[in-house]
């Protein structure tokens, strides 16, 4: 007898997707952040992760509210504006068995939190760090954020005269080894990126352009739905492949490139055409981003990947049990050890 194939609407844990829902969203209807929440649900459900093994972290902003709206059985922490990286660093160091999903905004990451963002990347804390990038401060009602394009005009904020900070570029210069950009209006791409990112052994940064329908969705804004749909330039296509899965990528002309992730899962990349971007080339990635910024190009795809760097928890040489769950017998040194110390100080 062969084992019954899992029903189509159940994941490998035998759970329906509905189990992975969160509370109803209170964000504006049509907000890009809502579609990203849905894709997080899809990715985690499809991977068959236990929700209790996932922690959701965020800063402050409309985007940072969204962890309440997905994975209702995961622990969540809505921290301070721009300070989610430090909280994630602490939590994920003391419990390495957890998957971390961080959600932030372009204000949260690019302005108040830029320092913590870069230092977390430098430490390579294992987590997925999603920036829901809309070029504005949504929650405080439409001020320019640091990712707004130069020359952009907004109803209340007027004209932006300052150049944007490219958060993918910032990530690469901080030695982040998983840097991708996507568009909230491209669900398939977002799902496969999240799945791959969850299997990356370090910080994976996903800069997802996520339109704010209330404050920044004019057709001429590079962060709008219209712009994304009409200008999206995909730099590469890839599939995320689970350990036992077969490669299903269409074997079209051109080379494929495989990058091994955690526990035998892989990313299989197909270059779109001769001379196009190689995401394992750091300098090419930086050049690509710099040029795209200068030309205001809307590029998406896996921009940079490097699986060499150890994560923070690996460097710390920690015992196998999560620090958070160590019992007293492993935490309090013996009475004799104290007596010996005291004797030496006499």
């Amino acid at each position: 007898m062969t084992a019954a194939a899992p029903a189509k609407n159940l994941n490998s844990l035998g759970l329906p997707k509905a189990e992975y829902k969160g509370l109803p969203s209170t964000l504006c209807a049509g907000c890009g952040h809502n579609s990203i929440s849905d894709k997080i649900i899809d990715a985690v459900w499809e991977l068959g992760l236990r929700q209790e093994q996932v922690i959701k972290l965020s800063g402050i902003g409309c985007s940072s509210k969204s962890p309440a709206y997905f994975l209702g059985r995961s622990f969540g922490i809505n921290t301070l504006h721009g300070r989610m990286p430090s909280v994630a660093t602490g939590a994920l160091t003391v419990n390495r068995t957890l998957y971390g999903i961080g959600v932030s905004g372009d204000g949260d990451t690019g302005s108040i939190g830029l320092g913590q963002f870069k230092h977390m990347l430098r430490r390579n804390v294992r987590m997925v760090y999603i920036i829901e990038n809309n070029g504005v401060y949504g929650l405080t009602k439409g001020q320019f954020s640091a990712t707004a394009d130069i020359g952009q005009e907004l109803k209340h904020a007027g004209r932006n005269e300052l150049p944007p900070i490219d958060l993918c570029l910032e990530a690469i210069t901080a030695e982040c080894g998983f840097v991708a950009r996507s568009f909230a209006g491209d669900p398939k791409h977002v799902i496969s990126l999240i799945k791959a990112a969850l299997n990356y052994r370090g910080t994976a940064v996903l800069d997802i352009i996520s339109p704010c329908v209330t404050f920044n969705d004019r057709d001429d804004s590079t962060k709008s739905y219209y712009w994304g749909k009409t200008h999206d330039e995909r730099i590469n296509d890839f599939s995320f492949v689970m350990p036992q899965e077969e490669i299903v990528i269409d074997q079209v002309e051109g080379e494929t490139l495989e990058v091994e992730l955690h526990d035998g899962s892989r990313i299989v990349l197909r270059k779109l055409a001769e001379g196009q971007h190689d995401p394992t080339d750091k300098y090419a990635a930086m050049r690509l981003l710099q040029e795209a910024r200068d030309k205001q190009q809307f590029i998406t795809g896996l921009i940079y990947i490097n699986t060499e760097r150890p994560s923070l928890a690996e460097l710390a040489n920690l015992v196998d049990t999560p620090l958070a769950f160590l019992p007293q017998s492993q935490l309090r040194p013996s009475r004799e050890s104290l007596e010996k110390l005291m004797e030496a100080m006499k």
């Binding site: 300070r83 430090s86 660093t89 602490g90 003391v94 040489n317 920690l318 015992v319 999560p322 620090l323």
Partner: peptide
């Protein structure tokens, strides 16, 4: 292997943020 982790943070704000994260997750931080 170590039964503790010590991190030199980028500033005190991050230091307490890390401690709060670790305490939330169950550590003595």
């Amino acid at each position: 292997k170590a039964t503790y982790a010590i991190i030199q943070a980028e500033d005190e704000l991050a230091a307490l943020g890390m401690v709060i994260g670790a305490g939330w997750a169950g550590a003595r931080a």
